[in-house]
Simulated scan of single mutants.
Amino acid sequence: MHSISSRPLYRLLPFLLVALLSCSKDSGSGGSTPTPTPTPPTPVATTFTNPLLSSGPDPWVVQKDGFYYFMATTGNNLTIRKTAKMSELGTAPSTIAWNPALTGVAQRDLWAPELYFFDGKWYIYYSADPLCCDGHRVHVLENSSADPTQGTWVNKGRIANPSLDLWAIDGTVLELNGKRYLVWSGHETTPNPTQILYISEMSNPWTLTGPRVELSRPTYAWEQNGSPAVNEGPEILQHNGKTFIIYSASHCSTDDYALGQLTLTGTDPLAAGAWTKSTTPVFVKNPANKAYGPGHNGFFKSKDGSQDWIIYHANTNPNEGCGNPRNPRMQQFSWNADGSPNFGTPVAIGTPITRPAGE
């Protein structure tokens, strides 16, 4: 018996022809489909630019369960934006949490909302003019939903010392040694428009107990630009056992609105002399970078928890004052050798900034 390889060439031609026809048939429409060329993945942006939104005075950020919740002054309601990435705040969906005109509560000029999660419930602290009582007061809302953009917000009323229910704005909460304290900006007496920072202990998230203690009043020249002289927008910053209050100084109508710093150098935040004020501002305008009147800030951690970020508002142009042109911006900050924060200088708008770590 002969193998195919030992046969003469002419006897192999039928086999070759069959093989060629088979190849032609397999490559046609009845055969297997050629593998398509894979589409390259869309590259993920590694940077963002300021401002984050075209408008957003008095920005505030809180983190919970992998999400950031952002609030800012809108004037007529309280709106929450929810996002997994702060660098994508501009595309985050927004929810109106509170509209006093729809609930029978007579209020106007809603300012500086701040969102917190205490004891299994959400709380919003905000300033509003209740159309009585010589102007603004700090008010509290409560929501038992796990997600603050859902559920029902219940009005808990104003938070104030009954014997000193005076003009007050910009309430923020300090948690220290198992206690909570409200820090705000208010008037010393009804006729005096100078804004002073005060602190009072809280017995629950909507009630003050004990005395009102003065923390800071505008005494330095850099705190007295515009009229009236102002200390406002206090925000708590804690790091490595140190507690700071970063506040806004001078009137928001001026381009010299800036950040000052109080450091808790004592042990009792209600004790006289327990806080030390920085003699110079810690964050100021940068006209070259189109940052006028930077202030009323908040703080948050990067997605992976390794970085500290400041969010603040600023005007893009000079003389834009206290209105809607104030836009939110954010940038990473570092720490000085003495443990105090180093905010640097406002980053120029439109400049690519590396996204917070983990995004």
Rank of each mutant, 00 (worst) to 15 (best):
3 S>C: 09
3 S>K: 13
5 S>W: 12
8 P>F: 11
14 P>F: 08
15 F>T: 14
15 F>C: 12
17 L>E: 11
17 L>C: 15
19 A>F: 13
21 L>I: 15
25 K>L: 14
25 K>C: 14
26 D>N: 13
28 G>L: 02
35 T>I: 00
35 T>R: 03
37 T>L: 14
37 T>V: 14
39 T>Q: 13
40 P>W: 06
45 A>Q: 11
45 A>Y: 07
48 F>W: 05
49 T>R: 01
49 T>D: 05
51 P>M: 03
52 L>D: 04
54 S>E: 14
55 S>C: 06
56 G>V: 00
57 P>C: 08
57 P>R: 03
61 V>E: 02
63 Q>C: 12
63 Q>M: 14
66 G>R: 11
69 Y>S: 05
69 Y>D: 02
71 M>K: 01
78 L>S: 01
82 K>T: 05
84 A>D: 13
85 K>T: 07
86 M>P: 00
86 M>L: 11
88 E>R: 11
89 L>H: 02
93 P>Y: 03
94 S>Q: 13
95 T>C: 11
95 T>W: 04
96 I>V: 15
97 A>F: 05
100 P>D: 07
104 G>T: 02
106 A>H: 15
108 R>W: 11
109 D>Y: 12
111 W>R: 04
113 P>E: 04
114 E>T: 05
114 E>M: 07
119 D>A: 00
121 K>R: 11
126 Y>E: 08
128 A>E: 00
129 D>S: 08
132 C>F: 12
136 H>S: 10
139 H>L: 10
140 V>Y: 07
141 L>F: 10
142 E>T: 08
145 S>M: 05
147 D>M: 07
147 D>P: 05
147 D>W: 04
160 A>C: 12
164 L>G: 07
164 L>Q: 14
166 L>N: 12
166 L>P: 04
175 E>C: 09
178 G>D: 11
180 R>H: 09
180 R>I: 02
181 Y>G: 09
183 V>M: 12
194 T>E: 11
195 Q>I: 04
199 I>M: 07
199 I>Y: 03
203 S>L: 07
204 N>A: 08
204 N>S: 14
205 P>A: 08
206 W>Q: 11
207 T>S: 13
208 L>Q: 15
211 P>G: 09
213 V>A: 09
216 S>R: 12
221 A>V: 06
222 W>N: 02
224 Q>G: 06
226 G>F: 01
228 P>A: 02
229 A>Q: 09
230 V>N: 02
232 E>M: 10
235 E>Y: 10
240 N>W: 02
240 N>V: 00
243 T>W: 06
245 I>T: 03
246 I>W: 02
249 A>N: 00
250 S>A: 11
256 D>E: 15
258 A>S: 15
267 T>V: 08
268 D>P: 00
283 F>A: 04
283 F>C: 01
287 P>R: 05
292 Y>W: 14
292 Y>F: 15
295 G>H: 02
297 N>W: 01
300 F>A: 06
305 G>W: 08
311 I>N: 01
312 Y>N: 03
312 Y>K: 06
322 C>R: 00
325 P>N: 04
325 P>L: 06
326 R>P: 05
328 P>N: 06
331 Q>H: 09
332 Q>G: 00
335 W>E: 04
338 D>R: 03
339 G>R: 00
343 F>E: 04
343 F>A: 07
347 V>T: 15
349 I>D: 09
351 T>L: 03
352 P>E: 01
356 P>R: 09
358 G>D: 11
